[in-house]
Nucleic acid binder design. Structure first.
Length: 212
DNA sequence: CGCCAGGGCCATA
DNA sequence: TATGGCCATGGC
């Protein structure tokens, strides 16, 4: 199955999932992208709620490290994530916490800058580029690899090859990338992970194996 | 009770 | 460059 065909199947099943990343503003997306690393979103939500609506970049910079750890504790890995949030926010400060300034940087260059921040790996970088800054950088995650392995859709076995496969198969459109990744995660949670043997799965007929 | 979630860092070979 | 150990909480 091709990447385009998979999109059509999932899109037909789940419709439009726009505004799927829950956040009040771009900075909250950035924070959420760090907090959700290998962590369930229910935990992330509890951590975000601890800020009680006051989640400004300046506050994260001003907050003593130990207090920040306490606030994000429900999200797990709080010792490292507190440092990561400081690092990412310090990077953001170079652009006056201004998304418009950031979005003017060439995409490849911007991605390299993000990857240079401690705590920001490929998926986190792409999530920030796409969901915080609205730039067309396709997000690969564990769900993407597993679903494509099952059907199969040929995307290679690592992050770089998978990202390239998606971006070369689709128009370079942030709205499309946003929607596609949302579809993959939604589908994974609703079927590929939850239902044994893919029972009731809309694309079940395409899957070669349910044990991936 | 054990498993694992929308990863990434670091040490090792 | 490619693995493997480690990080930590809450839901189930």
């Amino acid at each position: 199955m091709t990447i385009t065909q998979l999109y059509d199947e999932l899109s037909a099943c789940y419709g439009n999932l726009d505004k799927w990343w829950p956040a009040r503003d771009p900075y909250e997306v950035m924070v959420g992208a760090i907090l959700t690393q290998n962590t369930a979103w229910t935990n992330v939500r509890q951590a975000l709620e601890n800020f009680e609506g006051d989640l400004s970049p300046q506050r994260i910079l001003d907050l003593p490290l130990e207090e920040l750890k306490l606030l994000i504790k429900p999200a797990g890995f709080f010792n490292q994530k507190a440092v990561y949030l400081k690092e990412l926010t310090t990077w953001f400060a170079k652009y006056d916490f201004d998304v418009q300034q950031v979005a003017r940087i060439p995409l490849d260059e911007l991605r390299q800058e993000l990857l240079a921040v401690k705590g920001v790996g490929p998926e986190t970088a792409d999530s920030i580029l796409l969901y915080a800054f609205g730039l067309p950088s396709f997000v690969i995650d564990a769900y993407t690899m597993r679903i494509c392995g099952r059907i199969p859709v040929e995307i290679g076995s690592n992050y770089k090859s998978a990202k390239k496969a998606f971006e070369n198969s689709l128009p370079l459109d942030a709205t499309l990338f946003n929607h596609y990744h949302a579809l993959i995660v939604t589908h994974a949670k609703r079927h590929c992970l939850k239902k044994p043997n893919c029972s009731g799965c809309p694309v079940r007929k395409h899957c070669v194996s349910a044990s991936i």
